[in-house]
């Protein structure tokens, strides 16, 4: 087994992990109760999943400019995702698309809510 083989297999493992994250995200999308919790499920294939796949591709490609391109992909992904998720989260929050009940944690725990009145 040569170094090249090891790198190839490592790349495959990264691809596999990325695909598993995608599956977990899809299941989370279906199971989670409301918009904002579903967004949590969607964050991980978008960030770690894509990064893992890019790493896998890089491990198998091993050419300098391809790797540069892959770094660009990761960078663009990391720069653009927060913008999109923030806009969606804010719109969801403002239109009240989080689950119906809003309760202060302090009341649930029987603790005193020490927040100033406002």
């Amino acid at each position: 087994m040569t170094v090249v083989d090891v790198l190839d297999v490592l790349g495959l493992v990264c691809l596999l992990l990325g695909a598993l994250l995608c599956l977990a995200a899809a299941i989370g999308l279906l199971r989670f109760p409301d918009l904002l919790t579903r967004m949590h499920a969607g964050t991980k294939p978008q960030v770690l999943g894509v990064l893992l796949v890019i790493l896998g591709v890089g491990l198998r490609s091993r050419s300098g400019l391809d790797i540069g391109m892959l770094v660009l992909i990761g960078l663009f992904q990391l720069l653009t995702i927060p913008a999109g998720s923030h806009m969606v989260g804010r719109a969801g929050f403002r239109t009240g698309q989080i689950a119906p009940a809003h309760i202060h944690l302090g009341q649930r725990d029987g603790e005193v809510d020490d927040r100033p009145e406002g």
Partner: peptide, 14 residues
């Protein structure tokens, strides 16, 4: 849809 786009990215990468 965003998740679907990332799945497509993963699939193309794979």
């Amino acid at each position: 849809t965003d998740v679907l786009v990332s799945i497509v990215i993963c699939a193309l990468g794979a």
